[in-house]
Amino acid sequence: MMMIKFILNGEHVEIESDPSRRLLDVLRSDFNLIGVKEGCGEGECGACSILLNHHVVNSCLLPLGNIINQEIMTIEGFKTTKRYQIIEQAYIDAGAVQCGFCTPGMVMATESLLHMNPSPSDFEIKIALSGSLCRCTGYNMIIEAVKIAAERGEGLW
């Protein structure tokens, strides 16, 4: 057990825990942030995607010991931003959400992309979302949603 400090959704937090635990478990069980989903548990599906210092990362592969003093953002924290509102509306308008299980991860991957590259090409969008699986939409609507968000949110990223 070890005292581990990090920044979670903009707030300084600390937790007495085993540093080998998956961040996914810590977020869901200790902080009740259940927008972070467990799909495959081995880095293939992206449902557990969170932001580590603004970059998308699979929280199922991230041991707690690797995030000391780092900034973690989950869908719950991101929800309070203007950028989230733009992405959310774009996903709704493009029909990019069906069952919704992949959506929090897709949204975090979208934010990670637009943070680095505010006007991505189709190819860059596909690479950015390539770690997230969606079994409902066939992806075209999600790619469309990212394009709509980039257009409407011009200047926000």
């Binding site: 995607s49 580590l52 998308v56 990362v57 991957a109 770690g131 997230s132």
Partner: peptide, 8 residues
């Protein structure tokens, strides 16, 4: 892999 893994 994919960006989520390449970041770490």
């Amino acid at each position: 892999a994919a960006p989520g893994i390449r970041h770490v």
